[in-house]
């Protein structure tokens, strides 16, 4: 949650899947990425599987009703109380990662050690030790929104209070992990397909907001697509080689039936490889786009602005344009 007092030196970060993915990488975790969900349609979830957890961002309102029951003994679950403002983004992501046992996900040395070290702590102590981890804070803060100037008395436009919570499946049950609550919230049994269980909960949460008011955002922590596709391709390639070997040993005239069967299999594997290759290219293009967006976000625009103003001044158009801007602004302000 974002309060304006001090914020314990944790900056606010944007709820952008690209930033979350980088954040996770910064913690040393491998094998995961974050994707934004634009709807709760089944297909949306389907193409992201396996999904390790969901991070839900919403406008925080006091006195919201809690669905589900509070877990008293939460030792089986990694739950930490949020003791620092603004840290909720990092905390929600960590809640997913620290509870994840999927083979694709490698926590990395830093988080693994942290998890071990704080295993016997209660939620408050875990939250405190989390907020005291300098490395985690540094990584979190490196994703601050860029500010070109620091002002002495800049009017800190009060940010609305947004809050992140995590939904994760743990040992066949669905939990909501909200660092502002006293413990994990048990949302009942869920099978392997835990998305089916979480969907109605998210739906009712979203509809509780006035229609037209987009005040929430949903992100999924999923396996690293590129890594997965590359592993798939490797497997398919070895399948293909096997089939080639078998085919070469076959006497096509005698074993026509076996030959056709193998040929068929071969074609299927080839098709799968094409599809995987295509997806890999899509993923690589996306990463390139992210990289460019990142560079644009981090670019220092001051020299360009200064140059633009100088050029306009030399062309004798600057006064005219600023006057126009001023008039427009007055019209907006007066309206």
């Amino acid at each position: 949650m974002a309060d304006d007092d001090g914020a314990g030196n944790w900056c606010l970060i944007d709820s952008d899947p690209r930033i979350f993915t980088e954040l996770i990488k910064g913690f040393g975790v491998t094998g995961v990425q974050v994707e934004e969900l634009w709807s709760l349609e089944k297909e949306e979830f389907e193409k992201l599987k396996p999904i390790h957890g969901l991070v839900f961002l919403f406008k925080w309102r006091p006195g919201e009703e809690t669905v589900g029951s509070l877990v008293q003994d939460s030792r089986q679950i990694y739950f930490a109380k949020q003791v620092i403002n603004n840290a909720c983004a990092t905390q929600a992501v960590l809640s997913v990662l620290l509870n994840c046992n999927h083979k694709d996900v490698q926590l990395g040395e830093m988080l693994y050690k942290f998890k071990e070290f704080s295993a016997d702590f209660d939620p408050t102590m875990r939250g405190l030790s989390l907020s005291n981890m300098d490395i985690i804070r540094q990584v979190h803060n490196s994703f601050a929104r860029q500010q070109m100037f620091e002002f002495e008395n800049s009017s800190n436009k009060s940010e609305e209070a947004f809050h992140f919570v995590a939904y994760v499946p743990i040992n066949g049950r669905l939990y909501e992990l909200d660092g502002l609550k006293d413990g994990p919230i048990d949302l009942g049994k869920c099978g392997e397909d835990w998305i089916t269980a979480v969907k109605p909960i998210l739906e009712s949460r979203m509809t509780s907001y006035a229609t037209g008011e987009i005040r929430f955002n949903l992100m999924a922590v999923v396996s690293d697509h590129k890594m997965k596709l590359e592993a798939d391709l490797e497997k398919l390639q070895s399948n293909l080689s096997d089939l080639e070997g078998k085919l070469s040993k076959l006497d096509t005239k005698k074993d026509t039936e076996a030959y056709l069967k193998l040929k068929n299999e071969y074609a299927t594997v080839e098709l799968k490889m094409n599809e995987a290759n295509h997806q890999l290219r899509v993923e690589e293009e996306k990463r390139l786009r992210y990289k460019i967006e990142h560079a644009k976000r981090d670019h220092n625009y001051l020299p360009m602005i200064v140059q633009l103003l100088k050029c306009l001044a030399k062309d004798g158009r600057l006064v005219e344009l600023t006057e126009k801007a001023e008039q427009r602004q007055k019209a907006v302000t007066a309206a």
């Binding site: 100088k310 001044a313 004798g316 600057l318 006064v319 344009l321 600023t322 001023e326």
Partner: peptide, 21 residues
Amino acid sequence: DVTVFARALETAARAGTLQDN
């Protein structure tokens, strides 16, 4: 004041005293 600033820049441009970036 933006307009005052804009005028000053244009005057400087005409006088040829704007330095290149």
